[in-house]
Design a protein around this nucleic acid. Structure first.
Lengths: 207, 207
DNA sequence: TTTCTTATTGACATTTTTGTCAGTAAAGCT
DNA sequence: AGCTTTACTGACAAAAATGTCAATAAGAAA
């Protein structure tokens, strides 16, 4: 009477990946969930279902649901930082401000980077991720170097642009929809804002 | 043996409020939790404890935890809208742009209005709250009227300013802290940005 | 093939969170 | 005072979410 069923009898043959590949698979599913359903969708069962593995598999690889959260945050932060650095690097080259601005906004809007940031802020989790602080400093340093400006000015630039880009990336689409304007309108306006400032700072530089 | 304890015997005398006052009390506690611990802290038990009532009392007044969430969102939205409208109204009077800008940023930063917005965005809940759409239209209309500009221009102004103010309100403090600048720096820079634009739009108006 | 490692899983256990209900008591009314 | 209404509560039930574990099986190595 205490005999376990010896065969799963579910037709699907079991998939076995390398540990790293499996982690990637799960993180991809989790990221997709976060991006288009919000942080509340990051339940163990939902992630497992989206990744098409058993709940226990997720726990096997990440230890706990919190472990998954942290791993996901770190991966997304790394992606975001790489994109932002690329945007900054692109800034000094051909010097078409448009392209660099687009790249910057893209970095914060694609794949829910802004949503990640919002999540980090709401939960206060970013304080525990050393990732974040290092990344920010790296960006400031690179902007100072590439843009050939003082550290202080670079810090200001990063600060205001990041705040603006996050606001646009997180709320831009929804706000435009609410007001009845096309989805890309917010980005246009934001870019115009930065251009106006750049133009004004040529005669006399502030911020 | 099936006798219930007939006396609660807990020394504290039971507090009985008018229904409306009780709802307010609970909403206040919930709002405080949301603001300084994030949406994840909005559990039934935590809210009840913060409001110093029993779990069942919360359910009695709001039906379910979701009911509480909706009620809280609506109340916070109303507060935010009132503040923004006041800021817009203040704009045409004495015409010190500084004061109006400060009021605008205050509206999005105080009492976690920006955090509310982020929560609404992340969960997608704002689509179900007719509150939001009405409020936005009211703001656009009032800006067009008070600022004596076209509807289209007013819409653009509201769009970009809201996005900026939300970005600043939500991430401003944390970003400044990360970069190593004083907490109010983000607001200063944002105000400077808007001023630069206003200056540039005098000769030829765009956005 | 046989052996070995370990990714994978279902069944189960535990914890957390939400919801129900009958009974209690505080305030207004007659 | 008694009566009525209903805010309030503890005890309990139900549901949801997380975590444990022993058994299974896929792939690589021997």
């Amino acid at each position: 009477m205490s005999i376990r069923k010896s065969r799963p009898e579910s037709g699907a043959r079991r998939i076995r990946r390398a540990a790293e590949a499996s982690r990637e698979n799960i993180l991809n599913a989790a990221e997709a969930l976060l991006v288009d359903q919000g942080p509340l969708a990051l339940k163990l069962a939902e992630v497992a279902a989206a990744a098409r593995v058993a709940n226990a598999t997720v726990l096997h690889h990440f230890g706990s649901i919190d472990g998954l959260h942290v791993a996901l945050m770190e991966r997304m932060i790394d992606q975001l930082v790489a994109n932002v650095l690329a945007a900054v690097a692109a800034h000094d080259k051909a010097e078409p401000p448009e392209a660099a601005l687009q790249a910057l906004f893209d970095a914060f809007e694609t794949r829910g980077a802004a949503r990640l940031a919002a999540w980090l802020e709401l939960t206060g989790e970013w304080r525990r991720l050393t990732h974040v602080k290092d990344a920010v400093h790296k960006i400031v340093a690179q902007r100072a170097e590439r843009g050939d400006v003082s550290e202080a000015l670079a810090a200001d630039m990063v600060l205001i642009r990041a705040a603006l880009a996050m606001g646009v990336g997180l709320f831009g689409r929804s706000l435009a929809e609410l007001i009845g304007l096309p989805p890309g309108r917010t980005r246009q306006l934001a870019a115009a804002l930065l251009r106006a400032q750049a133009a004004a700072s040529k005669p006399k530089g502030e911020a």
